[in-house]
Amino acid sequence: MDTKLTNVATNAVIELDDELYPSDEHEWSSLVSSTKYALDGTMIVEQSIRKAGKPYTMQAPSDMGWLTRSTVNALKAERDKLGATYWLDYRADGAVKRVKVIFDTTGDDAVTATPAKEFISPSLDDPFIVTLKFLEIPSV
């Protein structure tokens, strides 16, 4: 498996399914612009390059990319570590890409998991459909 999440400080690795892929990969631009008007009506445009903050929403089709309850529990434990940073490795464009990320905890959905099948007594091996939300941070 190429897709994994590695805690930068502890080197703890959580293996992820290779079917997980950043679904919002093409919805973000590093170029940001701001416009305003001067008193004489002239439009003023300022542009800059964002240095970080790209969202990585890792998802797979509902019939692929399942993770076990045990893996989901490990991801939630990592999500709740204050100040933790991670290396996210995933396969794209015929290569393994690596980005430095944090969990996107701006909402309550940094890790969402839905049982892949109906069951009454969940075990650690039961499959879950997951969505993981991260934000890229500078890798210095």
Rank of each mutant, 00 (worst) to 15 (best):
P61T: 10
A60L: 08
Y90F: 15
T57Q: 14
D93F: 12
S70N: 13
L88S: 04
K4V: 07
L39H: 06
R69M: 11
Y56F: 15
D80E: 14
Q59E: 15
N11T: 14
L5D: 03
E25I: 08
D80G: 05
G53A: 03
E46Q: 14
R91Y: 14
A60D: 07
V72H: 04
Q59H: 08
K36V: 00
A12F: 11
M58F: 03
L39E: 09
E78D: 03
E46L: 04
A9V: 06
T85E: 10
Y56P: 02
W66C: 03
E15M: 11
T6V: 15
R69Y: 05
Q59N: 07
T35V: 12
D17E: 02
T10F: 00
L31A: 05
D80A: 13
R50H: 02
M43I: 14
T57W: 02
K54D: 11
S23H: 06
P61A: 10
E15D: 14
M43R: 15
L39D: 12
R69E: 03
P61R: 13
K54W: 05
N11A: 15
L75F: 05
P61V: 01
D24E: 05
R50K: 15
Y90R: 13
P22Y: 00
T6R: 06
W28M: 10
A38C: 06
G53K: 12
A9R: 08
R50D: 04
G41Y: 01
E78R: 00
P55K: 01
K76R: 15
K4A: 14
A38S: 10
R79M: 09
L39Q: 08
K54P: 04
A52Y: 08
D24P: 01
R91V: 14
N7K: 08
K51N: 11
E46W: 02
S33T: 15
T85D: 06
A84T: 01
D17W: 06
I14A: 02
A92Q: 08
Y56W: 10
D63H: 01
A84F: 01
T35G: 05
G65W: 08
G83W: 08
R91W: 14
D40K: 07
V8S: 02
S48V: 00
L20C: 05
A60V: 11
A92P: 08
Y21R: 12
L31I: 12
Y86E: 09
L67N: 03
N73T: 15
K51M: 04
T42N: 03
Y56V: 12
A74P: 09
